[in-house]
C-alpha cells in the first residue's frame, strides 16, 4: 500500500458517498445515469469474485464488500426507490455496446484463460468505459448539478491516482500489470475534458454548463 493507492481508494469511496448522499438527501436521482451505475455494479461484482477464493488483507476485503454493496444500493435507489425521478429519457446510451466488446476483448487479451481471470479482465475493461453513459447524459442535457460534478471529479481522480500508484510500484516493487495500466490510462483520459470544465468552471462557483 502506498499513498497514491490509498488516496485513490479514498477518492473512490468519497465519490460513492457523495452520490448516495445526493440521491438520499434530495430524494432524487435526476442527472445521474442509471446505465453507468448498472455498469459499475457489474464491474464490482465480476471483479471481486476472488473474495471467495483469496484473502489479501482486512482492508482489501472490507473495501471490496463496500464497493459491491454500495454499487448495488445505488442501482436499487435509482431503479426502485426513486424510480420516478430517474432521467430515463436522456439516459439512452446502449450499454450492450460496451459490455459485449469488453467481454470479447477479455477473452482475447488476458493473463490467463480461466473463468475468474477472464471476469476480472472483463471488469477492468468495462470499468474503463463505464462512465460513458454518464458523460453522454451530461452532454445531452448540457449541464450538471455541482454535486454531480463533485461526484464525477472524485470518481475520475481515483483511477488517475492509481496511475501514480502503478508508476510507484513499477520502480519500488518491480511490479506492473499492463492490462490494468492501459485500461486505467483510457479511463483517466475519458475524464480529461470533464476535469478541464470542473477546474475552470465548477471550482470558480459556476455551474457546469456545456457550450450550446
Amino acid at each position: 500500500m502506498n499513498i497514491f493507492r490509498l488516496l485513490g481508494d479514498l477518492s473512490h469511496l468519497l465519490a460513492i458517498i457523495i452520490l448516495l448522499l445526493k440521491i438520499w438527501k434530495t430524494r432524487s436521482c435526476a442527472g445521474i445515469s442509471g446505465k453507468s451505475q448498472i455498469l459499475f455494479a457489474i464491474v464490482y461484482t465480476t471483479r471481486y469474485l476472488d473474495l471467495f477464493t483469496t484473502f489479501i488483507s482486512a482492508y482489501n476485503t472490507f473495501m471490496k464488500i463496500i464497493f459491491i454493496a454500495t454499487s448495488l444500493a445505488t442501482v436499487f435507489l435509482m431503479y426502485v426507490k426513486f424510480k420516478a425521478t430517474y432521467d430515463h429519457n436522456h439516459d439512452t446510451f446502449r450499454i450492450e455496446f460496451l459490455i459485449l466488446p469488453a467481454f470479447v476483448l477479455a477473452l482475447l487479451i488476458n493473463h490467463e484463460l480461466s473463468p475468474v481471470e477472464v471476469l476480472w479482465t472483463f471488469s477492468i475493461y468495462l470499468e474503463s468505459v463505464a462512465i460513458l453513459p454518464q458523460l453522454f447524459l451530461v452532454s445531452k442535457t448540457g449541464e450538471a448539478e455541482s454535486i454531480t460534478s463533485h461526484y464525477l471529479f472524485a470518481l475520475g481522480s481515483y483511477r488517475g491516482l492509481y496511475l501514480f500508484n502503478w508508476i510507484y510500484r513499477y520502480y519500488a516493487e518491480d511490479h506492473y500489470d499492463l492490462i490494468a495500466i492501459v485500461a486505467g490510462l483510457v479511463q483517466t483520459v475519458l475524464y480529461c475534458d470533464f476535469f478541464y470544465l470542473y477546474i475552470t468552471k465548477v471550482l470558480k462557483g459556476k455551474k457546469l454548463q456545456l457550450p450550446a
Partner: peptide, 10 residues
C-alpha cells in the same frame, strides 16, 4: 515480476 495472481489492488 510481471503480474502474478492474485490481484492485490481494488
Amino acid at each position: 515480476t510481471i503480474f502474478e495472481a492474485p490481484h492485490d489492488e481494488l
